[in-house]
Design a protein around this nucleic acid. Structure first.
Lengths: 193, 193
DNA sequence: CGTTTTTAATTGACTCGTCAATCAACAAAA
DNA sequence: TTTTGTTGATTGACGAGTCAATTAAAAACG
């Protein structure tokens, strides 16, 4: 029973946060949505914070899986870089519950050490994935280029996530791919330090 | 008295949110920090939400003033673009209370219409400031370039804001300026479409 | 100028609701 | 009968918002 209940609670937590837009949801709401009493939620998770963290971990691990999946499909460094970029702007990342999870994750990361560590794991993974695939293309400039590409992914995701109604799909992806082209073309031009 | 009290409450709200990292602060806490009773806070603002919105507006208007100030100092489109970029990474924007304000602002913008509108005003202002100054430099490509520059500003700000300890100052600025160089240099290269 | 009336500022005490967490008790499987 | 799953009821604390009552300032009046 335990794993089933835990999974149901995690799912319910994500849904509830998505609907509220914030972490301001009660254990009772979560438990009700998961079809059990609030006492049981406490029994399995110990407290509200732990439920939240489990839900965050779950959302992040889904994103990680997506990136890994996209990477597995692509052949060659250029295609793999593109795959990483496209994964970030997948439709699934713009479901309102996923958006809510990320934004509240950022808020939480200010004060909660576990959240910050979790976040930095995913940031580092994105960065090193980019560097690994950019290196064969542009060599030592891969590091800096990766910072820009990752930054642009984050920034455009944020804008897109907060602009209701105007989400026309792959415009952000196009923008990042254009940046990628810039980075590739300008390779070797001014190698001054 | 009224304007003084309102200002004190706004200030106290920003400080309190900064310390908590979230909007999870009580009216009583805010009022105490502002040196008055919670009843008075309700008297002047009507409710918690309105206090929050006033605090957000205040933070955002400070940022707006900063950008305007930086713009006034700069001569020529290139320098003005640079000024906008530098303003975004000003030390003042990385005070913990300002970071907290922005992150919680994003969270609020998901569900609160006033917050979303306020946010989009500032996004549009940034965008049109960039376009206006990029146009003399790169013509019709200014629009797309502005999206990328603004996106990178947002993304790198986010990273920097959430990376405690590793804030070494002007690295994000450098990255965005490098992007700006890319955008300027690649003008006219592939004018396809 | 002194007195009365009006208005603004201010609060302590209170209401009503909510919520996290606990626990004792019940059910059901092993 | 021991372990696991489950809940209703309860507790203790806290918090937003209200209100009647108090003081202080200002305006109107004679």
């Amino acid at each position: 029973m335990e794993p089933i209940r835990r999974a149901a609670l995690v799912k319910a937590t994500i849904d509830e946060i998505g609907q509220a837009g914030s972490l301001d949801v009660t254990v009772a709401q979560i438990a009700r949505r998961a079809g059990m009493s609030s006492a049981l939620a406490h029994h399995y998770f110990g407290g509200k914070d732990q439920i939240f963290l489990a839900a965050m971990r779950h959302t992040l691990s889904l994103y990680g899986a997506e990136v890994r999946g996209a990477l597995a499909m692509a052949r060659g460094p250029r295609a793999r870089t593109e795959a990483i970029i496209r994964a970030g702007f997948n439709r699934s990342n713009f479901r309102s519950d996923v958006i809510a999870a990320w934004l509240n994750f950022y808020v939480l990361a200010q004060s909660d050490d576990q959240a910050r560590r979790l976040l930095s794991v995913y940031q580092r993974r994105l960065h090193s994935n980019l560097v690994f695939n950019l290196k064969p293309l542009i060599g030592p400039r891969a590091g800096e280029a990766a910072v820009r590409i990752a930054g642009l992914i984050d920034g455009l995701y944020l804008r897109e996530a907060l602009t209701r109604g105007a989400s026309l799909g792959d415009e952000p992806t196009r923008q990042v791919l254009t940046l990628l082209d810039h980075e590739l073309k300008s390779f070797g031009k001014d190698t001054a330090t």
